[in-house]
Design a protein around this nucleic acid. Structure first.
Lengths: 155, 155
DNA sequence: GTCGTTAATTAGGAGTGCTAAATATTAACA
DNA sequence: TGTTAATATTTAGCACTCCTAATTAACGAC
């Protein structure tokens, strides 16, 4: 009956559905001419808002800086992002999105959105409203997680 | 104004949150001694309910049978699943979970659940209820993609 | 100037994603 | 019966991500 118990029930349910949805969406991103791995999508999404340093990006997406560095290289070769050495601190690199990158991102978003829209289309209006509420709550709950990633990083 | 428009709004929101959550959960699964890629988790989840053929599994998780075949080999080497040639049709292979596989799955589920529970713990009771409703609706909408999952009765 | 820290990269190994081609087995049929 | 087509799985080669460990470059303090 405790709040914690309810949170656990929700967690149990969430645990079942999220990985599945993640995989379904990933499959959507693999269909186009050029398959786009989830990490590419995520990077593009971030840098589309504003440039980020490599370290920032790696932390946000829970991968090592080394892995991301190589990923950025691939993204750069495709012409979707560019590296820019910082002037204030010449050790850091800023990742920017390019015109092409922006375009690719928009395409992917449209495709994913179309797919989800179709899947949700036969829900009742009432269900859609409730789902919207749930998503908002979820986004709120994860807003911390979005910028701070729990690792055994010190404190 | 149309239902479709509302579905699209929901889709837009869902598209933003799910990939992120997927990645956060993946990161959770990478922390243990033996990193478990999402696809392993997914396979284990399926075969824990009942044995499946390789083709069935590949279809459900939206990857090619070839990719999955190799993945199954890795899982087999780790001793988490076993292959069993079918007697009715000797072309097909049935994938079964082992004791160790079941144990690993349980560990992962616990870890993921703990993590989600913590993340959701500070939500109000009302929000948790709404979130639960949203998840149920979502599971319903994706039930095609989930084929067997709703079999987990207990409401 | 030298030392320690920090940002990014490179190198090597493991594993997944794909397509195309190979191997078995089953089904269809003249 | 023997041949051919279809189906289930596997193997092989390429692209790419994930990791850790080690390296390079730049910054800050002394």
């Amino acid at each position: 009956m405790s709040d914690t118990q309810i949170a656990r029930d929700v967690a149990r349910k969430a645990k079942r559905i999220f990985p599945l949805m993640g995989r379904v969406m990933e499959a959507q991103m693999r269909v186009p001419t050029i398959p786009v791995p989830p990490v590419h999508f995520h990077v593009l999404n971030r840098v589309d808002v504003q440039p980020h340093t490599l370290t920032e990006l790696a932390e946000v997406m829970s991968v090592s800086a080394a892995s991301l560095s190589r990923t950025i290289t691939v993204l750069e070769e495709r012409g979707w992002v560019s590296r820019e050495r910082s002037d204030e601190d010449r050790r850091v690199v800023k990742i920017n999105i390019t015109q092409d990158g922006h375009q690719i991102l928009a395409d992917m978003e449209t495709r994913t959105e179309d797919f989800l829209t179709q899947t949700l289309a036969h829900l009742s209006q009432d269900d859609l409203d409730k789902l919207m509420d749930g998503l908002d709550i979820l986004i709120g709950a994860f807003s911390d997680q979005m910028s701070h990633v729990p690792s055994d990083t010190n404190t």
